[in-house]
Design a protein around this nucleic acid. Structure first.
Length: 107
DNA sequence: AGCATGACTAGGC
DNA sequence: AGCCTAGCCATGC
């Protein structure tokens, strides 16, 4: 049977927003929070992403911070996220950031 | 019920 | 430019 949708309505809205990010594009934490209807709920967004059991089936790798950088630390998921994004065609600049003007999802 | 934690952000100095 | 602070939300103990 399908997974039971638990948590608050906000959590579910955040998950729905995450699933809308198209392949090859990225979104910022604030952007997801805004799409979920709570522009200030950024912390709720990364709480969902940081909890591995909740990020199943979610394109968690497409969420980066407002500066276009991956927020994970080296050796703690950073390289995996970067590899996943590069596989989707996203090109990282020398400093390790992505060009938001080029790759940010605009609904 | 209260406090700590977590992949953030914008603003101030 | 880099560091500090406050604001924000859900969850776990």
């Amino acid at each position: 049977m399908p997974q039971q949708e638990t948590g608050t309505e906000l959590s579910q809205r955040i998950k729905r927003a995450l699933k809308r990010i198209p392949r090859g594009k990225v979104a910022t934490y604030a952007q997801i929070a805004a799409l979920a209807g709570h522009p200030r709920a950024v912390r709720a967004v990364f709480w969902i992403l940081h909890s591995s059991s909740r990020k199943a089936k979610l394109p968690w790798q497409r969420v980066i911070n407002s500066r276009g950088r991956i927020s994970l630390k080296l050796g703690n998921g950073y390289e995996q996220q970067r590899a996943l994004l590069e596989r989707e065609g996203i090109v990282f600049e020398l400093g390790g950031s992505v060009d938001l003007g080029r790759y940010q999802w605009r609904p």
